[in-house]
C-alpha cells in the first residue's frame, strides 16, 4: 500500500507498506528520519513522540495508514536551522546524558509550552509523565523546560 503525508512541512511518500505498520516504522525505516526513537513499541516510554496534526502521540502506536494525508512534526522539523530554544535549554541545563529519550522529551516539552507557555513545575512533570529517562532523574529535564518557558536560555 502507498502512503502520502506531510512530514516537517514536506510532502513525503512511501510504497509497499504493510497494513499493520506503525508510523514510527515509516518515519525511521522508510523516510530515514531517525529522531523519533524505537524503544518499547508499546507506548510506555515516549521515545517516539511526534506531533500528528498538532497532537502529541507515540508514533509506535499509530497505524501508519491512519496518517494518510495528515501532518507530522518530528524533532528534525522543530527548528528550521540549528537548534530550537527548548533544545538549547536542554543542553544548557545538562538535561541530556545518553540522549536516547531526548527527542521524545523535547517534543513533549514543545507540546506543553505551545498549549501552556508558563507552566508550573507540577504541570511540567505531568506533561512529561509519558517519557522515560533512565539517566537524568528528571530534575535537570524539568529545569530545562522551565528555563525554556522563561526564555532564560543563553
Amino acid at each position: 500500500m502507498r502512503l502520502e503525508l506531510r512530514v516537517n512541512g514536506e510532502i513525503r511518500s512511501a510504497e509497499g507498506l504493510w497494513s499493520g505498520e506503525s508510523l514510527l516504522y515509516v518515519l525511521r525505516e522508510r523516510l530515514g528520519l531517525m529522531g523519533a526513537k524505537n524503544a518499547c513499541e508499546q507506548g510506555e516510554c515516549g521515545s517516539c513522540s511526534v506531533l500528528l496534526d498538532g497532537e502529541l502521540v507515540c508514533a509506535c502506536l499509530v497505524p501508519a495508514l491512519q496518517a494518510q494525508g495528515r501532518e507530522v512534526l518530528t524533532v528534525e522539523g522543530l527548528a528550521p536551522q540549528g537548534l530550537h530554544p527548548i533544545q538549547e535549554a536542554f543542553l544548557a541545563a545538562g538535561a541530556v546524558q545518553c540522549g536516547f529519550c531526548t527527542p521524545g522529551l523535547v517534543m513533549a516539552a514543545y507540546d506543553l509550552l505551545r498549549r501552556h507557555p508558563r507552566p508550573s513545575e507540577a504541570d511540567v512533570r505531568e506533561a512529561l509523565a509519558g517519557n522515560l529517562c533512565r539517566c537524568t532523574g528528571y530534575t535537570k529535564v524539568v529545569s530545562a523546560v522551565l528555563a525554556a518557558a522563561e526564555g532564560a536560555v543563553p
Binding site: G43, E55, L56, L61, E126, A129, G130, N131
Partner: peptide, 9 residues
C-alpha cells in the same frame, strides 16, 4: 489514563 500521548489517542 497512561500519559498525555495515550490520552490524546
Amino acid at each position: 489514563v497512561g500519559s498525555p500521548q495515550i490520552r490524546n489517542r
